[in-house]
Nucleic acid binder design. Structure first.
Lengths: 338, 338
DNA sequence: CTGAAAGCGCTTACAG
DNA sequence: CTGAAAGCGCTTACAG
């Protein structure tokens, strides 16, 4: 496609060898100041830049990091991607991105592609299907090829690899404890992502906190379904049956839905019902009422995962896998005011 | 990084030449059925796949499409990216993604990088700063290198290139006309992205529709600011001063904010105030009230832009630039019921 | 039908 | 200080 000037052409114009040009441009101390100057000037003039494909072939590396994201329906993964991009670009890596659409099949196809030598390392968040079927062979294959893989966010999977994410159990445990500290006891849990390992961890956190002091966990308060309609109905039922005081919602959809159904029932937030959920932090303040949420610092997740991956790329460590857990924080808005 | 088997190694194992192996694997008719079979079997056995860096160097192409997105704070660009990915992968291209963060400087850096022969083509949505400063040289440079560029979504820019997007003026014109057809006349416009060309087009659509029949455009109804706080105040003021009947909001933030401020004022949606805006289509139905929105079919935008780009890559057309305009559609939810 | 050779655009020991 | 040569892993005219 491109007709940019090559080393060879520069060499011809300067009447020197290709090696000399290459060394001059790469700051080798072998070459005389004078030649270096001549070469650099001409290179500048012609706007020379090395063909990265050739460089990479020579170096036996690609300069690419592959990123596999399960979906893009909310901004969480987009934000993580932002963090990954920051860190990758700072280190001179390009990002090759893929979306698995929560499908194991697609994930396998992507991994096949990548293993054709497309990337020096892989950052991935496993798809829902991969987690439910516990099919991890395609991931392990990379370590055979000596391509490091770092998992991010969805790290509650039984795979021995480097991982970067948050403590999902603790996050929800803290949220429930906060609500209880306000004297609330009838706290429901709403979840539309039950097939993810991290949802299970969050539910465990909920149960632990509910079983803590003056309350015991009641399974009637657990509203889990992938179908928004089912969720909506159950939520209505629970609100009609019990005098609920608060909800913890585990994902974007269920958070908005909780707020909606509560209001449909003419209940006031936060006076009658308090909510802590997961929502897009950029827009959370503009909802009515605005909903308190658990900030997972997606940017940091992306950055840390990328740092770890680049370390692995640079020196394929002895196999001691690292798990980095970042803190979460409850951001209080309207729905937990008072 | 990878220790995968190469053509040369396969050739040695089979006692044939590298050329023979290459031709066998690439389905050349020159080679005997028998050899092809032997080669393919061994290749399969060793899980051979060609080193794409080498193939690309030879082919003088990269197999990559670079995508530059201005931001990722809402899901719009994420969805477009999804469409791009579908189409790119179908055609065997990899996506290299970049986020310009609405900065001209970053955009230039990215373009420099890409021009190092990283991609066969570029899909981009120009940053806000690029639009306000009207600085397009770095974009034109690609055409000099014969790397095709297709702009998407933000196509209201004075650049002669292929473009794929929607008719922003018409979209808002239609929205306002719809509201007027319901007998509403005091219709406000709210916008937090005034520095984008497409916002201007949308505002033009609003003015045209307001000047249409029994109403004339009033600049008091125009609420435009990049600062949410200013927007919030002005919105409150307008609601206090005029008996508003509806709002058209031009972006995610202003849409949510409009709904919020209206409700803070104890006004009912849609009884007192109707709203048409732009929101994440996946979550729109779960808001309370759910907000009617203009569906821009982001997936289609991504797919069409990618198709066009791939055409350009395959046969660098005589320079007649194409502008593809996709339809938008109003999706009616709570906020325009009745 | 098979293979030797050249070449894609680079880098880097090695020789002079 | 400079350059010739080999090589990264492929593909493809060309010769036999």
């Amino acid at each position: 496609m491109r007709s940019k000037i090559t080393l060879k052409e520069l060499a011809k114009l300067l009447n020197v060898s290709v090696s000399t040009v290459s060394k001059s441009l790469n700051g080798s101390p072998e070459i005389s100041k004078n030649t270096v100057k001549r070469v650099k000037e001409l290179a500048e003039l012609h706007n020379y830049s090395p063909n990265l494909t050739a460089v990479n072939l020579k170096r036996k590396s690609t300069g690419n990091i592959a990123v596999i994201v399960p979906n893009i329906s909310n901004t969480f993964f987009a934000k993580v991607l932002g963090g990954i991009e920051n860190e990758a670009r700072k280190n001179g890596y390009q990002l090759i991105t893929y979306i698995s659409n929560e499908s194991l099949t697609v994930e396998k196809q992507i991994m096949d592609l990548i293993s054709n030598g497309l990337a020096d390392g892989v950052l991935m968040s496993v798809s829902a299907e991969t987690q439910t079927t516990k099919n991890y062979d395609h991931i392990y294959r990379f370590t055979e090829y000596e391509i490091p893989v770092v998992l991010f966010d969805r790290i509650n999977v039984d795979v021995k690899l480097d991982k970067v994410g948050v403590d999902d159990m603790q996050s929800i445990y803290n949220a429930v404890r906060y609500l209880k500290s306000k004297g609330l006891n009838r706290i429901g849990l709403v979840c539309s992502i039950g097939d993810l390992g991290l949802a299970q961890a969050r539910i465990d956190g909920y149960k632990a906190a509910m079983n803590d002091q003056n309350t015991t966990f009641q399974k009637e308060f657990l509203i889990v379904s992938n179908d928004p309609e089912v969720l909506r109905k159950q939520l209505g039922l629970v609100l009609d049956t019990y005098e609920m005081e608060a909800f913890v919602s585990l994902d974007y959809l269920s958070t908005l839905l909780t707020s909606r159904v509560v209001q449909e029932k003419k209940l006031n937030i936060p006076e009658d019902i308090k909510i802590i959920g997961y929502v897009n932090e950029d827009f959370a303040p503009f909802l009515w009422p605005s909903i308190s949420y658990i900030d997972q610092h997606p940017l940091s997740i992306g950055e840390s995962a990328t740092q770890l991956l680049i370390e692995r790329i640079k020196k394929m460590q002895p196999k001691e896998f690292d798990t980095q857990i970042l803190n979460t924080k409850i951001v209080h808005l309207d729905s937990t005011l008072i």
